[in-house]
């Protein structure tokens, strides 16, 4: 039923208009809108309908108890995506880089640290809850986010636009790297833990050395620059000044973590 029928039947008792009725009539009136210069009243009708729709929508929302979770699914998914990138994934990344840095203090130290991490209680729960599931969610939604962008640095070559682009590039590289890394050093080993000699074996191959170098650096870049976006997405840094200082702060995070990661890779590869 549309509004026109409703008007026709108005003498036959009460007429109920649903939200959908009004919405569909608005859509219908949009069809006529091309002629609105000939029929100015059609534009008025449309404005009236829009007002009616807004009022009805508000009332129904209030009866339903406000906007519920499902109505803002896209918003909440994107917020979750931003949150997961830092908690827990970012925190895990820092921990992972720092623990691996034990390699620099000798094979024995590294194996002890790796063994400790490997023997944590509830390891599988931790791995799935803190690492695998959040990363998978972040990565899959991330690929979609990469897909919907239309990059335009050629005409708009501003610093932040480049960061925007690099964030997407490094995201994809990180995804490939992490999949390979998890396969090689976790899934393939079954219930065994990774040790120094395994990493030594992988990284003394020059191809894998550079693969890991690029993988680790793009992961750290993605995290550090992501931290900057996180501060904007959660409304922490609002002013241009605070956003600029956040740029420097995240640059320091990038440099510091890169040192930790690169130093470890070099130890594994060259034993120094």
């Amino acid at each position: 039923m549309n509004i026109f029928n409703a008007f026709k039947n108005r003498n036959k008792g009460t007429v109920f208009l649903t939200l959908e009725t009004v919405r569909s009539t608005i859509n219908m009136s949009q069809l006529y809108n091309v002629n609105s210069s000939y029929f100015p009243f059609l534009r008025n009708v449309r404005v009236e309908l829009l007002n009616m729709y807004n009022i009805m929508k508000l009332t129904t929302d209030q009866i339903k108890g406000g906007n519920t979770l499902t109505e803002h699914r896209e918003f909440l998914t994107r917020r979750l995506h931003s949150l997961l990138g830092v908690i827990p994934i970012g925190i895990f990344l820092i921990q992972h880089l720092v623990v691996n840095h034990f390699a620099v203090y000798g094979e024995e130290n590294f194996n002890k640290a790796a063994e400790f991490m490997h023997s944590l209680p509830f390891r599988l729960v931790l791995e799935f809850g803190v690492i695998f599931i959040p990363i998978l969610f972040h990565a899959i939604l991330g690929v979609y986010i990469v897909f919907v962008a239309r990059n335009n640095m050629r005409n708009y070559s501003f610093f932040r636009n480049w960061m925007f682009y690099l964030q997407r590039i490094t995201g994809v590289i990180t995804f490939v790297f992490v999949v390979w890394h998890v396969w090689e050093t976790r899934i393939q080993l079954g219930s065994e833990g990774a040790d120094y000699s395994l990493m030594e074996g992988i990284l003394s191959n020059p191809f894998m050395f550079w693969f890991y170098m690029i993988g680790v650096l793009s992961t750290i870049f993605h995290f550090a620059n992501g931290l900057w976006s996180f501060c904007v997405t959660w409304g922490i840094t609002q002013t241009p000044k605070s956003q600029k200082i956040a740029t420097y702060a995240t640059l320091i995070v990038f440099l510091a973590l890169s040192y930790v990661g690169v130093r470890t890779i070099i130890t594994f590869a060259y034993g120094v």
């Binding site: 896209e74 918003f75 925007f164 682009y165 904007v232």
Partner: peptide, 30 residues
Amino acid sequence: MEDGGIDGCGNSQNCVQVCPKGIPLTTSIA
């Protein structure tokens, strides 16, 4: 917060650079 809303922003910050009216768009977004 509805679909297509503020969550679509990816912080490329081109908008604030090109706005002919100098509107602090990125501050508004944050």
